[in-house]
Amino acid sequence: MSDTVAIVTGGASGIGRAVAEALLARGARVLIADLAPSVHEVAASIGASAWEGDCSAVAGLEDLVAKAETELGEVDFFFANAGIVGPPGLGEDESAWDTVLDINLRQHVRAAKIMVPKWQARGGGYFVSTASAAGLLTQIGQLSYSVTKHAVVGFAEWLNITYGDAGIHCSVLCPQGVNTPLLNGGAHADSSNDRSANKAVTKAGRVLEPAEVAEVVLAAIEEETFLILPHPEVLDMYRMKGSDYDRWLRGMRRYQKKLDEGTI
């Protein structure tokens, strides 16, 4: 990855920052994007370039890519990593659904619409979508998160199938618990759905550090592996789900009940 250019959205913290640091350590030139003003301080501390703004909007993404090309060169890697939890349960506010759909899903589609033609002209590129184990299984308590992460997996599959033979690679990251603000914020949330979601993840297996996830991500990219699973046990659960869907649903309902009762 030496002498390549990468954009990482959601790069001011968590997995995004860790991926950026791992790329920089391998000799890449990196632009981190985030809505948080702290992106500038983080970029300065790790040796990256910074872009502050809404990376889910078309205009924002166009400006982001233009900045990367001007300051760093043609973009080789795009990490669509920015994400939010979204409204708990079914949610009552339609605008909140629009927000989570924009950030968690449309960001990926809109970024690909910009990057794919450029990569077609150059003969190659790499798109990495951050989804979640919730995109393969589901997330107790958090409907919009589960729906959008399932959709991201479907998007990444389509991108891989459609352009993979043209040198445009696509992988999807599906971690379980990672020690990030996104996960930790649920522990003391006002919503019981969000608290249950947090417990469902933290009780299901080891919570990894972002740096551990970043190393798994870059190793998978080097092998051009589509499904990136920092928690290998997620694959076992996914296979169990596919082998007997109704049994898996019954098991998830039992797990949810225990979480609600506080017996887990």
Rank of each mutant, 00 (worst) to 15 (best):
E41P: 12
A211P: 06
V8M: 01
L183F: 11
T202Q: 11
A6V: 01
G73S: 02
E209H: 12
W51A: 08
G164W: 11
G164R: 04
V109N: 02
A166E: 13
G186D: 00
E212D: 13
S56I: 02
V30C: 02
E69T: 05
G53R: 07
A28P: 04
A36Y: 09
I168R: 06
T202P: 08
G141T: 00
Q256A: 12
L105A: 15
S49T: 09
A20E: 01
S191R: 03
E224V: 14
S45G: 13
R110C: 06
V201Q: 01
K67E: 11
D63W: 08
P181Q: 10
M240Q: 11
E94R: 09
E62V: 12
A111P: 10
H169T: 10
S38W: 09
R17H: 10
V172W: 03
L182G: 08
Q139N: 12
G16Q: 01
A214R: 03
S196Q: 12
D63Y: 07
N104A: 13
C174R: 03
A204H: 09
A48G: 07
A59V: 15
V30T: 02
S171D: 02
P37V: 14
P181T: 08
G164P: 07
V152W: 00
W97K: 00
G185Y: 10
D165S: 15
L143E: 12
T202V: 15
S146R: 04
R254V: 15
G186I: 04
D236L: 06
E92Y: 12
I264V: 15
A200H: 08
G123Q: 05
